[in-house]
């Protein structure tokens, strides 16, 4: 058998407040604690360099990208990176705000390859351009599709009216 069983309980994740201090010390960013995560913002042009430092700095060592999402706040689009460090046992959330017409941000595929399809999806559904993505093809939608369906300006017909969705129970 080449499978072993591990029963050792891992050390718990570092509290978000401590991660926020660490981020200020190592990156000079102001991180806020949201529920149990340290959340910080970076300017769009700094994403590539910050991502590299997040991964390569031994005190941060964020080697695992949990999730990459885009959110449309109408005035701007936010790209959210959920990060995890397996060796340092800590979590962090990096955010970047993009304002039209320049919805361009550095691709982080070179830092975390797991970002590949997440970025293509965000480009497909939100129209965010990831600079330097190795394969910027559409991911989910057909080639001839027009518009960015996950934007708030893209209606899902029919629009929800107030009486739709009577709560059960």
């Amino acid at each position: 058998m080449t499978v072993r069983l591990t029963t050792v309980a891992p050390s718990p994740f570092r509290p978000a407040a401590e991660v926020a201090l660490l981020l200020r010390e190592r990156l000079g960013v102001e991180a806020a604690v949201v529920i149990d995560e340290a959340v910080f913002f970076v300017p769009p042009d700094d994403v590539g360099t910050t991502a590299r430092r997040l991964r390569d700095d031994p005190a941060l060592a964020f080697d695992y990208l949990r999730c990459l999402s885009a959110v449309d706040y109408v005035d701007y689009i936010e790209v959210v990176y959920h990060l995890l460090s397996l060796s340092q046992r800590q979590k962090a959330v990096m955010k970047v705000r993009l304002v039209e017409p320049d919805l361009t941000v550095d691709s982080v595929v070179g830092v975390w390859r797991g970002a590949d399809w997440h970025e293509r999806e965000a480009a497909d559904l939100f129209g965010v351009a990831f600079r330097g993505h190795p394969n910027p093809r559409r991911l989910l939608l057909p080639d001839e599709f027009e518009g960015f369906p996950l934007r708030k300006s893209y209606p899902l017909a029919p629009l929800p009216s107030e009486d739709v969705g009577e709560e059960e129970q």
Binding site: M1, T2, V3, R4, L5, T6, T7
Partner: peptide, 16 residues
């Protein structure tokens, strides 16, 4: 317990 493999091949994924 958490089953963990060594080789990272198809067989280990099956065994896990």
């Amino acid at each position: 317990s958490i089953p963990v493999g060594d080789e990272g091949d198809c067989y280990d994924r099956y065994l896990v």
